[in-house]
Design a protein around this nucleic acid. Structure first.
Lengths: 144, 144
DNA sequence: TTTTATTCGGATAAAATTGTCATAAATAAA
DNA sequence: TTTATTTATGACAATTTTATCCGAATAAAA
């Protein structure tokens, strides 16, 4: 569904959000530990997310990553997916055709658009804040 | 969504089905031409589908691939996806956790299962025959 | 029985993705 | 200003996926 990089990104964002809610800036090593993702790879992914402006970072001692509490409610999972995997999830053809539209559809186009539109809606209505509070409450887990 | 191999597989099955409906056995070169997929790779994929029993093949002159007309209505897209990509589409965690269930869910588990269940239903209710007749009618395309 | 056309299957290659490493840049504190 | 700590980033490595190649096996026709 999503690339591995995208999975790492979503998990990292959720963990950082929980810490930001407690006004704690987190180092990449902490992120890796709490998400079970490879540290260096996650660092690279965070660079992309930082450039896209959906996470902020500070170098040096007492540095690390954080997400503004207000932003957190505005950032949706769809933003993370788009930042890492691009629009393939939303616009790509189910059979991988370069051009596949209402006018020139592939055989599964009509069946596919319906399901994908629901996936899109789901991602667009789920905020990082929603997921972070879920994680804080202990009802869900990031590792295992 | 699906692997490239799986896309090739679905396209190949649909094309072979249209030919089988006209009692024509097709060679792998024909399949590749009409699906835009690489011939040798498709050949390998067909081997897997053949072993799984969702397509039949005959070696030698006048050989090739075909799908029994009765079977064609029973074979669903879900069977092809399962044969090539396994059950990851149906059971895999959205965040890639090894264990993710109702009891120990990941943060997006509940949102995810709903969408995926609709995808599953869609794939399970769409037969190769349905798609082949659509392609025959000219309302959809396999290449581009 | 020989020839010819085709799939089968294993070895290999190429490309993409995932992951690591080392060095540079930034920044805060001493 | 120096030092310690942390992110930023580009080069490299490993793994997985995608794709190719070629000889073996099979089967129909000559």
């Amino acid at each position: 569904m999503f690339s591995k990089a995208c999975e790492h990104a979503i998990k990292a964002m959720i963990y950082i959000a929980t810490q930001s809610l407690e006004n704690k800036r987190v180092k990449i090593g902490d992120v890796a530990k709490h998400t079970g993702s490879p540290e260096a790879y996650t660092a690279k992914i965070m660079g992309t997310l930082n450039k896209q402006g959906i996470v902020s970072s500070l170098t040096g001692p007492y540095g690390g990553f954080e997400i503004n509490a207000k932003m957190m409610k505005q950032i949706k999972v769809s933003d993370i997916v788009f930042a890492i995997d691009g629009d393939s999830v939303y616009n790509g053809c189910g059979l991988g055709l370069n051009e596949c539209s209402e006018e020139k559809p592939c055989p599964i186009h009509n069946e596919f658009v319906k399901v994908r539109s629901e996936l899109k809606t789901m991602l667009e209505t789920t905020s990082v804040f929603d997921l972070a509070t879920k994680l804080q409450s202990g009802e869900v887990t990031l590792v295992r």
